[in-house]
Structure formats: C-alpha cells, structure tokens
Design a binder for these strands. Structure first.
Length: 115
RNA sequence: UUAACUAAGCAAGACGAUCGCCCCGAUUACUUGGGGAGGAAAGUCCGAACACCGCUUAGUGGAGACACAAAAUUUAUGUCUCCACUAUAAAAUGGGCAGUCGCUAACGGCGACCGUUUCAGGUAGGGAUAGAAAAUUUUCUGUCCUUUACUCGGGAUAGGGAAAGUGCCGCAGAGACAAUACUAUUCUAAUUAUUUAGAAGAAAGGUGAAAAGUUGGAUGGUGUUUAAAUAAAAUUAUUUUAUCUAAACUACAUCCUUUCUUUGCCGGUGACGGCAAAAGAUGGUAAACCCUGCCCGGUGCAAGACCAAACUGGAUUAUUUAUAGUUCAGGAAAAGUAGGUCGCAUGAGACCAAUAGCAAUGUUGGUCCUAGAUAGAUGAUUGUCACUCUAAAUUUAUUUGGAGCACAAAAUUCGGCUUAUCGCUUGGAUUAAACA
RNA sequence: CGGGGCGUAGCGUAACGGCUAACGCACUUGGUUUGGGACCAAGGGACUCCGGGUUCGAAUCCCGGCGCCCCGA
C-alpha cells in the first residue's frame, strides 16, 4: 500500500486527470498523467469488474500495481508534482508480478514521469 | 481395512527474512508497544435492531394566546394552539403466509411431533425353480421374485378448503362431469327379407392421464366369448341348432375387508390415533380465479446528527443589521455542493461451567473485549519444512527437477435461508470388495 | 443499499399449459445461367440458460441458481 500522501483520493482529482491528462497505453495497462501544484506525485488505480467478477482477484491486481509503484517511489525514481491514474484490461488477471512490473516501468518511462 | 452415503467440526498448510499499509496507545520529536477478514465475509432471498418521515386516540409536562375573578404586579381555573415524553395504533379495491405444539426480538426461520410419500433391510405370507424324504400328494432345505401385511431405520414434504361458487380438462372418444349412444344389446313400429325409424341405458367393446366412482376378496349366480365331447337336421368336404364340461371376463345377491363424511367412547396440550355404530357416496386441478384464518404504515447508515466557510447562491423594487442622517458602493444573515467529524464497534457479544428441556432454546455463575477501511487497510518478494501430483536417477525409499496447495474477502449491526468449496478429523447405519 | 428487464436453431425474433416448438436471414443439395448474383424447389440444424417441483401433460406456472443489460439514492 502506498502512503496516504501518494494516493489519489478525491473525486475531483480523478475527474481532472481524466479530462485533461495525457494518455499512454500498453498491452494490458494504460496511464493518464497530469501535473499538480504540489511537490509529491499521487497515483490512482482502476480495476473494473470486467477484469474479473471476483473481488479477490481485483484486489490482488491492485496490490501488485501499487507494490510496483511503491518500490520506485521508495528508490526515488519518480519525479514529483504529477497525478497519475493507471487503468487495466482483463488480460492482467493471470499475469505474474514480474510481468506487471516490467510493463509499469515501460509505461512510466513513456509518460515521462521517471527521472 | 478401503470405497460409496449421511451428519457434525477444522480450514488464507507451518515457521521465518526484507520492504510496506490501516487502527489504538506511549513519546515534544526521532522512535516504539499492541491489534488487524469468513464459514460462507458472497448472493441480497426473508426477518429484526437502529434512525428519520407519517398516522389514531388518551395521559403527563412545558411554552404561548384568549376568557373570567381580585385594585394591581401577579396568581388560580377553563378553552384553544404548538412542542416533548409515555402508552396505544393507520389505510387494504394491495401484498404476504398456511398441519399441530413449542422456541425466538422477529421471521417465509429453528426443534419435536402428526399425517402423506419414498428408499433400503428384517419377519410372516404368496409364487417360481432345484434337491431330499415319505410317497402321489405333502413336508423340509437352498436360490430368485413379490401387485400382500407387520416392523426397525434413513430421506422428502409450498401439508387449510375441490361435500361454497366459477373456470379449465387439447387430440382421441358416443360422452370430460347431473354428459352421452359409435359398435354391440334389448324393446316398439314399418318391411317378405336385407334393412329403416324411434325409445331404453343392466352388461361388454373401443378412446383416454382420468369414463360417472370407496378398494379388494370369498361364496352363490346371470350372461357373453372360446375350446372339446355327445345328439339332431341339412350336406361332397362341412355348416347350423341343442345339451354338457372346461377356461377367460362378468350383471346381481350375501358376507368379510377398506376410503371418505357423521355420531359416541377412550388416549393425547394438540395435529391425530384406537374402538364401536348408523345412513350414505362426492372425478382431477386452488404453484387457475377464488373462499377461510392470520400478519403487514413508508424509507433506508448515501438513514440521520454536527463542524467549518473552499465554491455556488442570495441579485433588480421589497425585510433586518452595521459602516454615518440621505444617495451610491461594498459586506454579513436564511439554502445547497465538495470536504471533514460523529453515527461506528459493550453487542438479542464471545468463551467456559452448572442446570431445565427429547431438542430448538432458556436460566444462573465466571472470564474476556476480539478489524473498523472510505478510489476503500490486513500486502509484495523470498527462504526452510510439511502435503499432493508428476518426470528422471539409483541405494527401492531416498535424491534432484517441475507443477499444485479450495471457495472466496468485512463496508451500520445481528438472526436465518440459499449458493460455492481443495482437503483433514470424528460419529452413524447399510451396501460392495479384499483379508483374517 | 434498493428497483426493473432479458435468456428459444449460427444470428434476429414468434408461440392460450396441449403434436420433441413457428418465421426471416444464414447453411446444404438440386434446378435456372456461358459463369456468378438474384430467383425456384427440397432438406438439415433446438435436450427452449441450469437444477428441482406442481400437473395426465411445462418453452409457458412455482421455487432456487447462473449469465447479460438497464435505472435510482
């Protein structure tokens, strides 16, 4: 789990990123990024019911995505001042952590969030 | 012993390492201690708690107005209005439920029982077959079947009323519920005859899930059909008629048994059961309409209460307040949205023991406090061991490699129901196989 | 936390409780044409989403699941 200051929480924040953010996509993930006015970067994750009907599976996908982002935040690889939303496609359900981690890295690089 | 069936219980396999998350506490802070998913948390199919809204009547308390009495401040009484609390409780052209007794806060739930039905077993009876004995018809034994009776055990049960009324019962069939006459039968009339017309409704055929209605059996007995024998008539074989015998079906009568309705007695809290008597007979369907009895006000924690003042609004004539009297200008006050706090974890609580009860469950005592997130915490990676499957190697029970290790995650809280579920443990009764 | 609808041949839709279920497109075969399309004729294809129950009889009625779609706070 990310620390509270790194989470995207409010409905308005999600709305702003969705409407004005820059979009990048890969095979089973996508990202929307928009700069915010603070120093820290915040992340939100969306895993819809189309990924899986089971809450257990959806929660697991979210946790793996968060863990992947958390490790990069911890190592100081991510620039400050961005809001990002990571979107998922159904194929992610049976992927392993290593595969997800690779794609996350690729996406963040593409979106210009990594240092 | 194993497998199948059934009823319960346990259940992110155990112990770590590194990096993290949520809540509570300690600390100025750095840090640090403790706690952190389920039997179904799921589906949302029922029922409640709780909150707000709404309704009838009564009582109590408070506030206000009016009337009256006293000279008055004011006080007392009465009436009306509003508010709060307590008790009771809307409307039914609507919805739901349905054996009995009990349990429960309540339920469409749970427990026990009754009735019905079903499965398997046992005993008795009956039938078939094989063998043996006496001896030509019985007995005994084995195996198999059973539309029979009794009984032990398990399962299912939306289980009020069809003798209140209405509707429906396709095709077939004469006729589908106070109906009907196709074949066949009987009677009457016409006709030489074949046959035609009308009537009857005791039996049979045929149709169908069901045929006019309580079920089955015994004895007597009527009739029909078939077969054999005898006799008579006609006759080439043969046919017809009569008698008698046998088989099948059968009107009717008597007796026994049995279903339902009614009455009486006995047992039971009761559903109901047992016994006896009398008169009688009424198709099925209520998960068709309906009738009877009972229950039900609505919305749901996004209920609801509060904070603060970010944003919108309040604007023009009109209200109040203040800047200062007037004008102008700007500000504040009623509302809402985003946000935050509470609701939100001491409860129909959990565990243990005793006790009442067949049980559901109740009572008493002791111990304990056990998740509270909100784009939503309880995780990610990895090591060793355990279990299952699989491949290879050899020391034949070890090593190495690979894969797997259920169903599924709180969202106000409980009681049920339903559905999903790898495996392990325990109990029960029966069947099958193997071994002794 | 609540409310509503749907599920039938490959696809889109029908069907009073009464014949293992109808129509169109698609499919197969044949005809027609120099060939194709169109047209004509014939034919195949469904355990009516799943599991129970009521009934003589269920796609239909009732109960419980599964899946899909939509709506409100």
């Amino acid at each position: 789990m990310l620390a509270k200051e790194n989470r995207l929480r409010l409905k308005n924040d999600f709305k702003r990123v969705f409407e004005k953010g820059k979009f990048c996509g890969d095979k089973f993930l996508a990202i929307k990024v928009f700069p915010n006015s603070s120093d820290v970067s915040r992340f939100g994750f969306i895993v819809s019911k189309k990924v899986s009907k089971k809450a257990v599976v959806r929660n697991k996908v979210k946790r793996r995505l968060r863990e992947s982002v958390r490790l990069r935040l911890k190592d100081g690889l991510i620039k400050g001042g961005f809001d990002a939303i990571i979107l998922t496609r159904p194929e992610i359900a049976d992927k392993k952590f290593v595969e997800i981690d690779e794609v996350v890295d690729k996406l963040l690089r593409k979106a210009g969030v990594l240092k």
